[in-house]
Design a protein around this nucleic acid. Structure first.
Lengths: 218, 218
DNA sequence: CAAAAAATGGGTACTCCTACCCATACGAAA
DNA sequence: TTTCGTATGGGTAGGAGTACCCATTTTTTG
């Protein structure tokens, strides 16, 4: 078949981006119509070129892949999204799916896997890295249970998220209170609520969590 | 000139490895003689093929790029080493230089930069990502001052390193003491000594440091 | 409008960690 | 042999954070 799949490729690592571009373009069905080194340029080019598929790195300087996806959600473009990430992380994975991603790949994926993903997504199917099947099953069982058993970062209120991200920047409650011009007790209250929502216990639970989930706290 | 530079390429991410391979091979002077997905295979192929240059990812499953470099140090091979890493991290950088690396590149480097690095190293020069010039200057000034002003992980004793890596695994002093069958006071003494050596201050200073330098604590 | 959620603030007890004080034992280096 | 580094242990004070208790105000939502 001579059906062309037009693709925009966004990743801030030149070698990875160019390399993947070359590898994908070696397939006659696939055409790379643009590349972008960051989310802002990716979004511009997606809106201008309206590719079939946008392959977006999650972690890019400036606008992240998630930011681009959010911006696209409010448009009526038919461009489908494949996320590409370093992190075998359930939180990021769930965020991606909540943003309506059709594909989710780890950067360590084999080339054949990425090609298969592109073709599956081009035909309207979904494709998720097999390495993440655990997360997918957990997500499915959660959905089946009709209750969210393991609340994530996304269940936090804006204030709580703000505090959490400041914790990830290694600020103490005292410093956070001073910065936000609120009482340290309020900060500690937020901490408590976050701990409860995320089922975190023990000493420095929040600091540990925050440092391990920095990426999601941009 | 028709001088061929033979290269072994080791990285656990297939797309990055293949992509970089294709990009480098597009230069007529450069020939990729082998690729490897992990340190063990990299070492085998280096010993068998004796390439001019080995481009090694630092973070690979099993044997890391550093492990390979250590193994090569004790051999008398002329293969020069270029390290490739995600992390803009001074500790990793210094370790690499201590291991006799001729090149040190960030994965976010431009393709031209990597090509320049390969050619420089092939001619016996050194090449370090310009993004790391800060570290290089710090290292130089440290050496000039003839004293190590900022001791690093490498200045810790074996016991201290063991404790630090357990801290990075989110164990409390109590748990570490139980695991090692020593008094919690000894663990706390190690913590103190580590804090002093690394000039760490404030609450949870060690936990923060340990979580931010996990990669070096394997 | 009423109810729920979110944000604000305070009290108290407890644990963990840091930061200082003290010491003894052992092996290696000067 | 003496000294230094390392590992081992104890005491004590204080800061930071968790985990409960209490409350009021504002905003959002049904």
């Amino acid at each position: 078949m001579a059906i062309e799949i037009s693709i925009l490729l966004a990743d801030d690592h030149p070698v990875f981006r160019r390399g993947l571009g070359l590898l994908l373009a070696s397939d006659p069905q696939i055409q790379i119509v643009a590349e972008a080194p960051d989310g802002t340029q990716a979004l511009e080019k997606i809106l201008a070129l309206q590719p079939d598929i946008a392959i977006l790195d999650v972690n890019m300087p400036g606008q992240t892949g998630f930011d681009v996806a959010r911006a696209l959600q409010s448009s009526d473009l038919a461009t489908r999204i494949i996320f590409l990430t370093m992190h075998r992380d359930e939180g990021i994975f769930n965020t991606a799916l909540d943003l309506g991603a059709q594909g989710y790949l780890l950067k360590e994926s084999a080339i054949e896997e990425i090609q298969a993903c592109v073709k599956a997504v081009a035909q309207g199917e979904k494709f998720i890295s097999p390495q993440l099947s655990t997360f997918l099953l957990q997500r499915a069982s959660r959905a089946a249970a009709f209750v969210q058993q393991q609340p994530t970062i996304h269940d936090l209120t804006p204030s709580e998220r703000r505090v959490l991200s400041m914790i990830a920047q290694q600020q103490t409650s005292r410093e956070i209170a001073d910065t936000l011009c609120i009482s340290i007790r309020t900060v500690e209250r937020h901490r408590e609520n976050i701990c409860n929502k995320l089922s975190l216990h023990g000493s420095n639970a929040l600091l540990k969590f925050a440092l391990e989930h920095k990426e999601q706290l941009v």
